[in-house]
Simulated assay, not measured.
Amino acid sequence: MAKENYFVGLEKPDSLLFQEGLEWLVRGAKTTGGWIVVNQRESIGHIARHPGLGRLAIFHKRNVTRTIIADCIMELVTKFTIPTDGSKKPMLVFHPTIELLNKLEEIPNTYSMLVIPWLAEEADGWAKKNFAKDLENPDLPSIYVDEVAVTAFKHLKFAFSESHPRTPAEYRAALCQTLQILIENGIRFEPQAMQSALVQKCGWGPVSAKQIAELSDIFLSSHSPVGYDGHGPWEPDIIKLWKIEAKKKDTK
Rank of each mutant, 00 (worst) to 15 (best):
F7I: 02
F7R: 03
E11D: 10
S15V: 07
S15L: 09
F18T: 07
Q19P: 00
G21C: 05
W24K: 03
V26S: 06
V26M: 10
R27T: 05
A29T: 07
K30H: 05
G33A: 10
G34C: 00
W35A: 00
I36G: 00
V38T: 12
V38C: 08
R41I: 01
R41A: 03
P51E: 04
L56E: 06
A57T: 05
H60M: 12
K61T: 13
K61C: 08
V64N: 05
V64S: 05
R66W: 05
I68Y: 09
I68A: 11
I73R: 14
M74L: 15
V77S: 05
T78R: 09
I82D: 06
I82V: 13
T84L: 11
G86I: 02
K89F: 01
P90T: 00
P90G: 01
F94H: 13
I98L: 10
L100I: 02
K103Y: 10
E105P: 00
E106R: 06
I107Y: 03
P108Q: 12
I116V: 13
I116L: 11
L119G: 05
L119N: 13
L119C: 08
E121D: 14
G125C: 04
W126T: 00
A127K: 04
A127N: 06
N130W: 13
F131K: 15
L135W: 03
L140P: 05
L140S: 09
P141D: 09
S142H: 12
V145Y: 11
E147S: 15
E147H: 14
V148P: 10
V148S: 13
V148H: 11
L156P: 05
F160Q: 09
E162P: 01
S163Y: 08
R172P: 00
Q177N: 11
L179E: 07
Q180D: 15
I181N: 12
N185V: 10
Q195A: 08
Q195R: 15
A197I: 06
V199E: 14
Q200V: 06
K201W: 01
C202F: 02
W204A: 07
G205P: 05
P206K: 02
P206M: 02
P206S: 05
I212K: 08
S216E: 09
D217N: 14
I218C: 09
L220H: 08
L220A: 12
V226F: 10
D229Y: 04
W234N: 07
P236H: 13
W242S: 09
K243V: 07
K247I: 06
K247H: 12
K248M: 08
K248T: 03
